[in-house]
Every structure is written in structure tokens, then in C-alpha cells.
Design a protein around this nucleic acid. Structure first.
Length: 334
DNA sequence: AAACTAGTCAACCGCTAGTCA
DNA sequence: GTGACTAGCGGTTGACTAGTT
């Protein structure tokens, strides 16, 4: 197939920075006729630009819904989380940050975040530790350094490396880490309501002062699922309390106040049982109906929680005392 | 004050996927 | 099925600015 050039090779097509007059022409035309027809637009709008250039100018700078100015801390955290999930899929990342363009995010990543990663000893491409021996042993198969990186970078930026490292060690199975792991591991395949439900239930774990709110489960399809679905937390909250009806929290990992948390109870269980064991048939059917991947999700989550269970924790704080930390995450899904 | 360097970011380029005749 | 065309994406470039020597 012979590809025709994007722009006619005629002389006179302008390149480089746009003038206010050109911007005005483009805005006027698009306000009147709407987007589309980029190839013929320049001629109709009286611009000596190629259509591609017009589209880019509009998409990146002239669109009325574009947010300008510096990135907020939350936006930065979102970028990092989404980048961990999508890699250099800037458009996908941009979808998670309303008002920001892929180009802007890409630039911000390359000029700010990437440098910070390197400064903190993290490979910006693989997001593995650049410091030998720091990455491998800490991460279970299929769950690489990335998640820790997210936490490291999204923690207080001014923390020195030592402090950051200490936090990583200390936080152990923090709530944010747990959520990061779950979100990034399953974000692509599960009904976001499921995750929100888990978030809503508080999760099994602990949190620290430097925890992030950056967990961002993505993809439009994830958001499109039914509102009638009962979140996992609700289902779990309805489930019977352990086999013998006694709820105990024998593990030193969890605080006493954790006993009412279904996921915690699950984690506390040493029998390696799956999630389905905690659900009534009806509830489980609801789960299955709500997401095609739910069964697989539950298996994975089961395995996942087992991994977390093996982690060492120095400090314990009941998760549901930090509900507000997760509200933003839920808000993201709203 | 001039030259140089580094950082930033708007814009461009090349490519691909999707659509339609 | 094929080819032309369009829109969009990600990587790269280069102009501009600020800081340093």
C-alpha cells in the first residue's frame, strides 16, 4: 500500500509555533463545525497548516477542557500508578487524568518523574531497582518491583533515600501497598466495583503515614460495569464468620480491631482456602455474573493474600481507621 | 556581558489501526 | 480482499529559557 503523505507537499504550509491569530481561526472554525475532517480543515479555516498540526494544536492546547498549570501531587501519583499499569501508553494514562493531555503527561514523565526515579535508584524503563540485590528477593514472581516503586516515588518526594527505604521496609503490608498490588495486578480484568468493594471493606492490611492515594485501576471497560452489582466487601461482610463461628485474630500481623474485617479474617486463616469458601452459593453466583474474570480473580486474589500474609510487619494499624485515604480512590471510580 | 549548558515543552515525524468504498 | 484515507499514538526534535561559568 502506498501511503500518501499526511500533508500536501506544497510549499507554503507553515510549521513551528502557532500564532494567536492562527489559534483564533482554528478555535472559531471548530466551534462552528466541530471536530473532525482534519485533512480539509486547514483550507476551510483559512490556515496554512497541515491537518495533523491543526488536530494536535487543538487536542493539546486549545480544547476548552484542558487543564493547564503544574501537576498536583495527586496527579503525579496517578501518573506513576498508571504508568506502572500501562507503561508508556500515554493516551491510556491521560484518560485517567481528566484535563491533561497525553503529550503533557509524556513530557512531565520524561522531564520530572523519570529523573526522580533515576535519582532514587530505579530504572525508569523496567522500574526495577538499579541497586543490585534490592529487587529480586523482595518480590514474588509475577509481582515485580513496580509496586514498591510506586510507593517509594509517591511517598513524600523530599524524603531522603534512607527514609524512603525505611518506609518501604517498615510499611511491610501496608494498605496502600496492598491496594497498589491488587489494583495493578487485577485492574485490567476485574469489575472496578469489585475492587472498590475491597477498598471499601478496608482491606486486610495496615497503613503508614506515607501511604499514597494513587491506586488507580484503569480501563474504560473496568468502569462500565453494572451499578447493581454487590461489591465484594458487601458480600464478604455477609459471609459467615469462620467455620466454627469464632472469630479470632491469632496472627500478630493484625490488630485486635481487625477481627470484624472479612478480608482480615480471611488472611488470618491458615488453611489456604479460597474466597469461594466464604461466600454463599448465591453470593458467589452474583460475583460470577458480575465479571467474567471474577472466578479467576478470586483465585488470584487468594494467592495474592497468601503472599501478603507472609510479609513481615512492624507496625499495625487497622485499615478502616484510614478510610478517608481510600475515598479518593473510590471517587476516581465514581 | 558573553558563552555555554541544562531543562522544559510545543510541535513534528513516522508509524499503525480502523474505516470505508 | 484490497487500497486509499483518516485519526491517533508514541518517540523525537528543536526553540526557548534559566542558570552557571
Amino acid at each position: 500500500m502506498v501511503r500518501t503523505p499526511c500533508c500536501k507537499a506544497e510549499l507554503g504550509l507553515k510549521k513551528g509555533a502557532w500564532t494567536p491569530e492562527e489559534d483564533q481561526k482554528l478555535i472559531c472554525y471548530l466551534n462552528r463545525h466541530g471536530e473532525g475532517g482534519w485533512r480539509t480543515l486547514p483550507e476551510k479555516a483559512g490556515l496554512k497548516r497541515c491537518g495533523k498540526s491543526c488536530r494536535l494544536r487543538w487536542a493539546n492546547y486549545l480544547r476548552p477542557d484542558i487543564k493547564r498549570g503544574e501537576f498536583t501531587e495527586d496527579e503525579e501519583r496517578s501518573i506513576i500508578s498508571l504508568h506502572a499499569l500501562h507503561g508508556n501508553k500515554w493516551s491510556a494514562i491521560a484518560r485517567g487524568l481528566p484535563g491533561r493531555t497525553d503529550n503533557e503527561i509524556k513530557n512531565y514523565w520524561n522531564t520530572h518523574i523519570k529523573k526522580r526515579l533515576i535519582r532514587k535508584g530505579v530504572d525508569p524503563v523496567t522500574q526495577n531497582s538499579l541497586i543490585s540485590g534490592r529487587g529480586k528477593s523482595e518480590n514474588p514472581p509475577g509481582f515485580p518491583q513496580k509496586q514498591k516503586v510506586i510507593q517509594t516515588i509517591t511517598s513524600d518526594d523530599d524524603l531522603d533515600d534512607e527514609k524512603v527505604n525505611n518506609n518501604n521496609k517498615k510499611s511491610g503490608v501496608s494498605s496502600a501497598r496492598f491496594l497498589n498490588r491488587v489494583a495493578n495486578r487485577f485492574g485490567k480484568i476485574i469489575n472496578h466495583s469489585v475492587l472498590s468493594g475491597i477498598i471499601g471493606s478496608g482491606g486486610p492490611l495496615t497503613t503508614t503515614t506515607t501511604s499514597t492515594t494513587s491506586v488507580t485501576v484503569d480501563s474504560e471497560s473496568d468502569k462500565s460495569t453494572s451499578s447493581s452489582f454487590t461489591p465484594t466487601s458487601n458480600l464478604l461482610c455477609q459471609m459467615p464468620v469462620h467455620d466454627n463461628g469464632n472469630v479470632t485474630s491469632s496472627s500478630s500481623t493484625f490488630s485486635d480491631s481487625s477481627v470484624n474485617d472479612p478480608l482480615l479474617m480471611y488472611c488470618d486463616n491458615k488453611d489456604n482456602m479460597g474466597f469461594s469458601r466464604f461466600l454463599s452459593d448465591e453470593d458467589f453466583m452474583m460475583l460470577e455474573e458480575s465479571s467474567i474474570e471474577n472466578t479467576e480473580f478470586m483465585k488470584e486474589l487468594t494467592r495474592f493474600l497468601e503472599e501478603d500474609e507472609n510479609d513481615v510487619v512492624d507496625e499495625v494499624t487497622p485499615v478502616y481507621e484510614y478510610q478517608d485515604i481510600f475515598q479518593e480512590i473510590d471517587h476516581y471510580f465514581a
